[in-house]
Amino acid sequence: MLTGFQLSQAIFAIAELDVATVLLSGPRQVDELAADVDADADTLGRIVRYLAQHGIFRTSGSTVELTDLGRTLADGPADSLRAVARYFHQTHYAPFGSLLDTARTGEPAATTFFGKPFFDWVNENPTMADLQNDAMAGFTQNARGDPLQILDLPQGRTVADIGGADGTLLVELLAERPERRGIVFDLPSTVSAAGPTLQAAKLEGRVEVVAGDFFEEVPTADIYVMSAILHDWNNASSLRILRNVAKAAPENARVILFEMVVPEGDAPHPTKMIDITMMGMLGGRERSETEWRRLLAEGGFTLQRVVTGSGSYSALEAILV
């Protein structure tokens, strides 16, 4: 465990060099691979050897090939996490060196490291904002599993994806529901990426792209969807968002949260790792079902059901009180 930082950095290096994408076409000699990715052959070979014991590569002499796990570090596969690895390398790794300060003060390590709240730092850099969009789309799609397929969407014509970034989730929700219309709502620097996504899905005529700040106000809709949004924020900030939704929502409006639910007990679960990520980067948190129910009630909604599928995320459906 103490040397986990070395494993992280080795994976980050492979992701930045785009080694796995090169190997999608088949095995390569280390020297040839190093030339293709502009790396030192001896050093790359030693990193590959180290990662092979973790199941990312297979080696035979000086020949390197990808495993199924290694393919997730390549661009192209549906389960690619390359953008996530590059994002964590550039955003999360260094701030976590200040986690001891977080433990002492409660202040997010990223705020200490960057000198400002993390999202403020990201949104000052369009390239970083784009990388965040790519990383979060890939991460949530892969971790979410199948709640979208097994969840019956409530009645209502207009679906608003609050914090919808590039519109990926809304495309999934509306693709097979031609009677519905949608709204992608996010900060101007983030939601600008939604246009190409909607055009590619031929949904631009049914979806309105709206820029704004959910701490100020949100548009009116029948169904509000938020995917991995409230876990970014502490309870006070989450309540501001929920109350703004309640203020804009018509009678009987629904909220569907795609979030993780922390189970009871000490058994391993992804939520317990991601909770530490939220603590260190944003001051947010993962919540148990009891905590979600309480938060929604304080925000003006009654939790009606929790739908759990094949992935790490659940769909929490609540109705406006």
Results as ranks from 00 to 15, higher is better:
Asn133Asp: 15
Ile162Arg: 07
Ala109Thr: 03
Val207Lys: 01
His231Asn: 10
Thr91Asp: 14
Thr43Ile: 15
Gln199Ile: 07
Met128Glu: 06
Thr21Asn: 00
Thr271Gly: 09
Leu100Ala: 13
Leu73Ala: 07
Glu179Lys: 00
Pro126Glu: 05
Arg305Gln: 09
Leu295Tyr: 03
Asn252His: 00
Leu257Trp: 02
Val321Tyr: 09
Leu173Ala: 03
Ser8Pro: 00
Arg293Ala: 14
Leu169Val: 12
Gln90Thr: 08
Arg240Asn: 03
Ala129Tyr: 14
Gly145His: 08
His92Tyr: 15
Ala74Gly: 10
Leu2Ala: 12
Arg305Cys: 07
Arg177Ile: 07
Gly145Pro: 07
Leu2Arg: 13
Pro250His: 10
Phe301Ser: 05
Arg49Ile: 03
Leu203His: 02
Ala297Met: 02
Lys247Gly: 03
Thr140Leu: 11
Asp68Phe: 09
Gln199Cys: 06
Trp233Met: 05
Ile319Lys: 10
Phe214Trp: 14
Ser25Ala: 06
Pro95Cys: 02
Leu203Phe: 04
Gly55Ala: 12
Gly61Ala: 15
Leu170Asp: 08
Arg49His: 11
Ala15Ile: 14
Leu174Thr: 04
Asp161Val: 01
Leu151Phe: 05
Ala160Leu: 11
His54Gly: 04
Val159Ser: 00
Leu73Gly: 13
Asp213Glu: 15
Thr168Asn: 13
Ala267Phe: 11
Val184Met: 08
Asp275Gly: 08
Thr91Arg: 14
Arg243Gln: 14
Ala193Pro: 05
Gln132Tyr: 12
Glu179Asp: 03
Gly70Tyr: 06
Gly311Arg: 10
Asp31Asn: 12
Leu242Trp: 01
Ala103Cys: 12
Val207Met: 11
Leu51Gly: 01
Phe113His: 00
Asp161Ser: 07
Val261Ala: 02
Ala13Cys: 14
Ile276Val: 13
Asn235Trp: 00
Arg144Thr: 09
Ala318Thr: 00
Val191Ala: 00
Gln199Pro: 06
Thr111Arg: 07
Glu286Cys: 10
Val225Ile: 08
Ala109Ile: 03
Gln53Phe: 10
Val207Phe: 02
Glu204Gln: 04
Arg28Trp: 04
Gln53Lys: 15
Phe215Thr: 15
Thr21Pro: 02
Ala74Arg: 06
Glu172Gly: 11
Asp36Cys: 06
Ser60Gly: 12
Val321Glu: 10
Gly145Val: 09
Ala41Arg: 05
Phe258Pro: 02
Asp31Lys: 12
Phe301Asp: 09
Ile56Glu: 09
Arg294Asn: 15
Ser227Glu: 14
Gln53Ala: 08
Ala160Phe: 05
Gln155Pro: 09
Leu33Ile: 15
Gly145Phe: 06
Ala160Tyr: 07
Gly300Phe: 08
Pro178Gly: 04
Arg254Gly: 09
Glu172Phe: 15
Leu170Ser: 10
Val207Thr: 03
Pro108Arg: 07
Asp42Cys: 14
Gly97Ala: 05
Ser314Ile: 09
Phe214Ile: 13
Leu66Ala: 06
Glu291Trp: 06
Asp79Glu: 13
Gly265Ile: 10
Thr21Met: 01
Leu151Lys: 03
